[in-house]
Write a protein that binds this DNA or RNA. Sequence first.
DNA 1: AAAAGATTTGCATGTATTTGCCTGTTTAAA
DNA 2: TTTAAACAGGCAAATACATGCAAATCTTTT
Lengths: 254, 254
Amino acid sequence: MEGRVNGMFKNERHAFIMKQINLHNKVLSSELSNRLEVSEDTIRRDLAELADAGEIIKVHGGALSKSYHYPIQNNSVYAQDSKKEIARKAIKLIQPGMTILTEAGTTMLEMVRMIPDEVEATFFTVSPLIALELADHPLLTVILIGGQIDMSSQINIGEKPISELADINVDLCFLGAHGLDSKAGLSEVEWKVVQVKKAMIKSSTKLAVITISEKLNSILKMKLCNPHEIDYLITELNPNDKRLTPYKKNIQIL
Amino acid sequence: MEGRVNGMFKNERHAFIMKQINLHNKVLSSELSNRLEVSEDTIRRDLAELADAGEIIKVHGGALSKSYHYPIQNNSVYAQDSKKEIARKAIKLIQPGMTILTEAGTTMLEMVRMIPDEVEATFFTVSPLIALELADHPLLTVILIGGQIDMSSQINIGEKPISELADINVDLCFLGAHGLDSKAGLSEVEWKVVQVKKAMIKSSTKLAVITISEKLNSILKMKLCNPHEIDYLITELNPNDKRLTPYKKNIQIL
DNA sequence: AAAAGATTTGCATGTATTTGCCTGTTTAAA
DNA sequence: TTTAAACAGGCAAATACATGCAAATCTTTT
């Protein structure tokens, strides 16, 4: 029927797939099909060939790295759809040329994955995982703020990131919420994490808080910031949902 | 029938094709045929000649730059086993309480995965992926040296990591080798990467070079360090293998 | 300068690859 | 169990390819 749709050779596709697999240790046929703009059949054949060559391990729906082991276990799918919806809203805040600061978390990861390839912006982040995912986007400049890795929060903590954050000034900061209350504002559990996030807030002109509705109206031990310091609140709910009413006073709901 | 349509000789076409390939990393037969106003047969013959001469890599529908495909595909079954063997040797260098600096690369990743859980040490790294993998080990302290992510090398580059590296002092540095020669020492392709790796070497008391034997006896554009600056050389070969003899003068072979 | 030889190129023929679509089947999750 | 997604295999179309050949051009020789 047709030889090659766009200008990508089979070899290039294979190379791309291998790169993705080396990076993420897994690929989904559907995603590849989308990204490379070829049919799923073609991707299936590609994966079959690579698997035949012993380069990857084929599984139902995609393929895995031959030496897989990876710190990303995305098995709590319960809120997957919500997170996608949140991500969709959050991406609208990203304007071309912006400088953006993000933290870690599955919602953030979901958002980062949904950023279109055409977006051009500069991202700072304290999360290695987010940084790697961002770096997949061709037009993004990604700057990882180093430090000691804290596995429970998946971000870099300590003195170094805090002082580095003090030196930057970004347009927009995306934070997840562990605790969020209309009166008490953002709160956290861990002191070390709070220190870093406070520094993140201080470095940013605007603050967007991203969270699933479950986390609303909860107050945790460590206070992070007041409600009026938050500029945008993004949840999976409709902005007019009455659960969001208490927040409307200070915050723009998306 | 007709020899040359317009005023372009075969050599000129070849030169043009090489220019295009160096510029875009790939060419399409159809495009070239259009652009140069010759038949696709002629282009095919041109590409075949250039491929025979080893200048390019021919693929169905066009050709790719040699350097494009080179660094990507090194995941044969054999190489995988070699990397495990290398990793086993490298781990023996890790003593409890040590401070260690590592770069990126699949061999490094393999090594990091094989580190036993009981090992207690401090790791610095410029690779987000390695950092995440290291952070899986309960007793390791992992410090990620931040900076702008360079996707081709998978490490953080730029001024920041270099100045940060200047502030630390570690017992042992693990480097992979892109080019290694008994007389010329370590070499690299990319300037930006060289800068970071030089800083890594400077911060370290001992230097261990990790590489599969394929990479031995190769010299690349950018020099990284002299052979006598290398303390350990780790390959998948038996230390008594004669291919390693030239290196024994300056370096301890594991 | 003319003839002979070599090279280069386009064309025609038949073959091979690549790819999307179609069918029905298997698989995995709700 | 039911249902949607993923799969395998076959088919058809569009290219891409290899080969042989003849014409045009270039090179060498006479």
